[in-house]
């Protein structure tokens, strides 16, 4: 792509060799102003072209704040996003055999020298953000980072010899953050319960967080056992994971990933971000100016996706990190 060496300013404008260049929106607007016939042609051509299918994504450097909490920030969508082809997971059980999955994810990446952020976009007709129901499944997506893009085996959750680092965004966590923890009453609006034993003195409907306040987490066994997924208080919708192959995913000790997902009109736009530098010993370190390997995966809640029932990149992709 011609703009492969372009950089992006926080306001969304693309620069090439230091010369300001109009954004895609400005190109279209300019076309409209120039004349209906030309404008129509420009608009159609721009839409039809869309992102190309590819296996290399270049993380461009932004000067200023990295838009880690805003999937619609101007910085996004300005520079060569890549359409990554996915396939239904069929390597390990349970395989994704239900539903057609997600065929493509539009991927782009930015970094500011300190952190790297990915934006994933894919079509999903339903927003599935309920994590509390027995038989309901949330939407989710993930970016897997590997030290080398040449080691194809890394695509499948890393290998026994070398851990992959994963950023996992969860729609239910996003909802917990946006709307407050989705407690029992959120999933069962008509729920009624006499009392919860250790919280007898609570003069309102007990909340999950009350157990922590009452130093009674043994009533929430996973929380008491230190399961990092169990706390009802969340600060980020993105979990940082390391994995040494299928079935080995584990939360990293340092949880410093950020992100934000928004569903609008049948499409998820999700940002997942983390520091470039490793913060845990077996985490993949990303160096500006060097390449790394990466893969993406998407879970569709309406197709009962969960765990290894997912759509994932067909090949390990190359991540070019701009200097």
């Amino acid at each position: 792509m011609s703009e492969a060496r372009s950089d992006v300013r926080p306001d969304g404008a693309v620069t090439e060799s230091g010369r300001p260049r109009p954004t895609r929106r400005r190109v279209i607007a300019g076309g409209v102003l120039a004349g209906a016939g030309i404008a129509g042609g420009t608009l159609l051509a721009t839409r039809d072209r869309g992102p190309a299918v590819g296996t290399t994504v270049r993380a461009r450097r932004v000067h200023g704040t990295l838009p880690v909490d805003d999937p619609t920030a101007g910085a996004w969508g300005q520079t060569g996003s890549v359409l990554v082809e996915l396939e239904r997971q069929a390597t390990t059980t349970p395989m994704k055999t239900r539903g057609k999955g997600v065929d493509h994810v539009e991927v782009e990446a930015l970094h500011d020298g300190t952190s790297i952020a990915f934006r994933l976009q894919w079509d999903d007709p339903e927003r599935d953000s309920d994590g509390a129901g027995v038989d309901v499944w949330r939407d989710a997506c993930a970016v897997l980072l590997a030290r080398s893009h040449a080691d194809e085996a890394q695509r499948l959750m890393g290998t026994a010899d070398e851990a992959a680092s994963i950023l996992h965004w969860k729609a239910d966590w996003q909802r917990d953050i946006d709307e407050g923890f989705q407690d029992v009453e959120a999933h069962f609006p008509n729920a009624a319960y006499g009392f919860y034993p250790p919280l007898v003195g609570v003069d309102r409907t007990a909340r999950a967080a009350d157990y922590t306040a009452a130093d009674a987490t043994e009533w929430l066994p996973a929380l008491a056992a230190g399961n990092p997924l169990a706390p009802a208080t969340r600060t980020s919708p993105v979990e940082k994971i390391r994995a040494h192959g299928y079935g080995t995913a584990a939360s990293l000790p340092t949880q410093n990933a950020r992100g934000k997902g928004e569903w609008d009109d049948g499409r998820w736009r999700v940002v997942l971000a983390r520091p470039l530098a490793r913060t845990d010993s077996d985490e993949v370190h990303i160096n500006p100016g060097a390449d790394a390997g990466f893969a993406v995966a998407v879970w569709r809640g309406d197709e009962d996706d969960g765990g290894s029932r997912k759509s994932l990149a067909k090949v390990l992709l190359r991540l070019e990190v701009a200097p």
Binding site: P94, G131, A132, G133, V134, D172, D183, V184, H187, F188, A208, L220, P221, A222, L223, A224, A225, G226, N227, L229, A230, A232, A249, G306, G307, S308
Partner: peptide, 29 residues
């Protein structure tokens, strides 16, 4: 309880349905 990630494959596979989902911690018990 420290390892479960709430995939619920166990719930689906147990024919006696004696694995359960905790609606608050979102893992199985």
């Amino acid at each position: 309880q420290s390892m479960c990630r709430g995939y619920r494959a166990c719930m689906e596979a147990c024919p006696y349905k004696k694995v359960f989902y905790n609606h608050v911690t979102r893992v199985s018990e």
